[in-house]
């Protein structure tokens, strides 16, 4: 299985388009960091201007906050970059006419399909690792570290600087599960097409459509929202909220809604299993004509 996965990884990383995602992430994060380095004070003034009744001291615009800002912006776009590869995994082979040839090799369709999925997942994880290096470590290097201050919709959270890093480890781990779910959807759709554009566009359209549904606050959609995987993709932010005691002191090392994180991970994992399972079942019954 690992041999098959290695071959698939080799194929992925031989393609120039694979590196477009890494380049895009590097450019985007670099642009945000440069902008905030040059004129970050204006951003901070805008951010805290509306809480003028409070006196704020300390390095607000530090590496931890910059990484959070970047993640908020980029985790909406990263599914597109993940889809570019995952939705091409099977359809790309069909498009090149190599699918029938590959399946004559002495391993099962399930093995071959799973190795393809594992390769797509490893690519996704590498992309996120690169993003973590650039957004977190890069920002820590450029802007330094300090406590992290977050303006939530109805309250402010200040996290002690010793209490932040593990939250990012958790948040990136959560984001990895989310992105693998996106990869699984693209992977499923790629078995239906003989060119890559169709599954890529369809995957993105589904994600955009479901994101709109999950953000609309219409009671009718509230019933289905908990079952949509895109609803749960944003819950990495839960890592950055703390519990408080009776005296309203935040408790270091705690998470306000850990059950929400666990629930979201379960929903995302179920989607991954469902998408990949469906892909295996359908692919096994499929007539391979190309």
């Amino acid at each position: 299985m690992w041999q098959l996965t290695s071959i698939e990884l080799y194929k992925i990383f031989r393609r120039p388009r694979t590196y477009i995602s890494f380049a895009a992430i590097t450019a985007l994060i670099g642009a945000v960091q440069l902008g905030l380095k040059v004129d970050g004070q204006s951003y901070v003034d805008f951010m805290i201007g509306s809480i003028s009744s409070l006196e704020i001291e300390g390095n607000i615009l530090n590496g931890y906050l910059i990484c959070y800002i970047i993640l908020q912006m980029l985790l909406v776009q990263v599914p597109l970059l993940v889809t570019l590869i995952s939705a091409d995994m099977i359809s790309g082979e069909a498009n090149m006419g190599t699918l029938r040839l590959v399946l004559t090799k002495p391993f099962s369709r399930t093995q071959w399909l799973l190795s393809k999925f594992f390769a797509a997942s490893i690519y996704t994880l590498l992309l996120l690792t690169w993003m973590a290096c650039m957004a977190l470590f890069g920002s820590m290097l450029i802007f330094g570290t300090d406590d992290m201050m977050l303006l939530k919709s109805s309250y402010i959270v200040i996290l002690d600087d010793t209490d932040v890093f593990w939250r990012y480890v958790g948040a990136f781990g959560f984001a990895a599960v989310s992105m693998v779910a996106v990869a699984a959807l693209g992977f499923l759709l790629s078995i239906f097409s003989e060119n890559s554009i169709g599954p890529i566009v369809t995957t993105m359209s589904i994600i955009v459509f479901l994101t709109v549904l999950s953000t609309m606050n219409i009671p009718f959609y509230n019933y289905i929202r908990p079952y949509l995987f895109v609803t749960h993709m944003n819950n990495w932010k839960e890592f950055f909220d703390v519990q408080v005691n009776a005296e309203n002191q935040s408790l270091t090392g705690t998470i306000q809604n850990s059950s929400r994180i666990i629930n979201s991970i379960i929903v995302l994992l179920l989607h991954i299993v469902a998408f990949v399972g469906a892909a295996v079942v359908i692919f096994k019954k499929k007539d391979i004509t190309t």
């Binding site: 805008f46 951010m47 805290i48 201007g49 509306s50 809480i51 009744s53 409070l54 959070y68 800002i69 908020q72 977050l150 303006l151 939530k152 919709s153 109805s154 309250y155 402010i156 953000t215 932010k237 839960e238 809604n257 929400r260």
Partner: peptide
């Protein structure tokens, strides 16, 4: 009399007290 900003950090989380 204290006023808090809304949505400046693009936070639209649910169940936020």
């Amino acid at each position: 009399d204290y006023k808090l900003p809304k949505g400046i950090t693009l936070e639209f989380e649910e169940g936020a007290k």
